[in-house]
């Protein structure tokens, strides 16, 4: 039980990543594959943020005079995730536009029936 309590955020992050990877590998509908990719995206963001966390730490902002720099959480993962979220949205939209074009071409979203460019 103490293992679960100590590692809740890691377990949730890897749970999201593994659920996303399973969807990408096992599902046959292309929209579901794109949803799986966004699951992996959120899981990795949560993992980076939880690696940077320090117990009892404050946000890395000098909003009041009395805040000590020694108690702040790591600002670098937060800076990385901040841009990664917006980029994730743009890349998701790009993937969805490819799915739209495939549907217009083949009239289906099932990857077993889309056989045009398979090697």
């Amino acid at each position: 039980m103490s293992f679960l309590n100590a590692n809740t955020y890691y377990i949730a992050a890897f749970g999201l990543i593994f659920i996303g990877l399973y969807i990408v590998m096992a599902k046959k509908n292309l929209v579901k594959v794109v949803i799986g990719l966004s699951f992996v995206d959120s899981g990795i963001n949560l993992l980076l943020i939880s690696i940077g966390y320090i117990k009892g730490g404050t946000a890395p902002i000098f909003s009041r005079p009395g805040i000590s720099p020694l108690k702040m959480v790591d600002p670098i993962p937060q800076a990385l995730v901040l841009t990664a979220i917006v980029i994730g949205v743009a890349v998701l939209a790009l993937a969805l536009s490819l799915v739209v074009k495939l549907y217009q071409q083949y009239g289906t979203l099932d990857i077993r029936k889309i056989r045009g460019l398979k090697w």
């Binding site: 940077g52 966390y53 320090i54």
Partner: peptide
């Protein structure tokens, strides 16, 4: 990398 400990180097 245990959760919640101080791992800050570059920052």
């Amino acid at each position: 990398i245990p959760f919640g400990t101080n791992k800050i180097k570059v920052a």
